[in-house]
């Protein structure tokens, strides 16, 4: 099987699910696929999905790498708030765009470094280590914004939220470029394989001479970097840093995107592209609910029901059942069949 075929087979469940969700929306709302060009940019509900899904997509990139190492990063939502606050603060303090963006990105990298050090050097379990920043991060963001929504009118910074490039909204350009770039880096170098190796068996990887510590730190730093980009976009979108609400609960959506993307929470094999499609599935569900015109009381129930269906359909048990028409537990047994014969 060629590499391309293998790749398509890997992301097929996600693509089918996305197509299914989009088809469902277009049944509920017939004008869904209408795309036009207004003010020099593409305009339409599918573009909204790409655009509104940008923060979760960016977070999912870093989250995928972290989860591949058998970790988890609960702090990304709070890191978004910090970096959004830093960018708003920077621009309102009169720093130029470059310095402002640099400060915001550095803030994200520092947050990632902090998580990485807690996990790799102090050996704290990732869920606990990142919980610290999840809780404290929003407080830090509030200190920066002094409790209010820190608004700004700098057109250059706003461009990152509502500008457009090649007729695509800027956030879409950012997440697609970041996603492809990081995919390219991890797959063109040996990083991807080393990350998977560490996630599957940390001890054996270390014994094979892999610098596991540095690798672990690197994935958390990457996660911080992605959260910084998401934070900048979220702040630029509303022209203000909202320390309380920016990125609130998005860490959970990012984890969900990774899971829908088929990467196991137990680490190992990962696919960034599948996670990005997962993020788009989540956003398609959100946008679909908004377009449907149901009363808002139904939002969460509908979302939960759709996601439950997606996860059940993608579950290994059902997939094996459909693929082989046999008892579903067989692959599990086959996987464990490592006993010497």
């Amino acid at each position: 099987m060629s590499g391309t075929a293998r790749f398509l087979r890997r992301i097929a469940p996600q693509l089918i699910t996305l197509a299914f969700v989009l088809a469902l929306i277009s049944v509920m709302f017939p004008g869904f696929f209408n795309i036009s060009i207004a003010n020099g940019r593409l305009y339409g509900s599918p573009i909204d999905i790409l655009n509104r899904g940008a923060p979760v997509a960016l977070l999912a990139i870093g989250m995928t790498l972290v989860i591949a190492t058998r970790g988890i990063d609960l702090s990304v939502g709070a890191v978004m708030a910090i970096c959004g606050a830093v960018s708003a603060w920077g621009i309102t303090q009169g720093y130029d765009l470059g310095s402002t963006l640099l400060m915001a990105v550095v803030a994200g990298l520092v947050c990632g470094l902090w998580n990485g050090i807690l996990v790799s050097f102090l050996g704290i379990q990732p869920i606990v280590a990142t919980l610290i920043l999840m809780v404290a991060g929003r407080g830090i963001a509030q200190l920066i914004t002094e409790g209010a929504i820190l608004t700004f009118n700098d057109p250059n910074l706003i461009f990152f939220g509502s500008g457009s490039l090649f007729t695509l909204p800027m956030p879409v350009v950012i997440w697609i470029v970041t996603g492809l770039l990081i995919t390219w880096i991890v797959r063109r170098t040996a990083l991807g394989m080393l990350i998977e190796s560490v996630g599957i068996n940390l001890r054996a990887s270390t014994l094979a001479g892999i610098n596991s510590r540095v690798l672990l730190i690197a994935v958390y730093v990457t996660s911080g970097f992605c959260a910084a980009l998401a934070g900048i976009i979220a702040a630029a979108d509303i022209r203000g840093a909202d320390a309380n609400n920016a990125g609130l609960w998005l860490e959970l959506d990012a984890i969900l995107a990774v899971v829908i993307g088929g990467t196991s929470l137990l680490g190992g094999r990962f696919s960034l592209i599948a996670s990005l499609i997962g993020a788009m599935i989540i956003q398609a569900v959100n946008t679909g609910i908004l377009l449907s015109g149901f009363p808002p009381e139904f939002n969460l129930v509908i979302k939960a029901a759709i996601i439950l269906i997606i996860l059940v359909v993608q579950s290994p048990a059902l997939r094996t059942g459909m693929a082989f028409f046999r008892k579903p537990r067989q692959t599990d047994v086959a996987k464990k069949e490592t006993v010497t014969q």
Binding site: M193, E196, I200, N201, R203, A204, L207, A208, R269, T338
Partner: peptide, 15 residues
């Protein structure tokens, strides 16, 4: 170094 416990210290099973 080929360690004694292949599964825990040696192979990366899913690779």
């Amino acid at each position: 170094f080929c360690p004694e416990d292949r599964k825990i210290d040696g192979i990366i099973a899913d690779l």
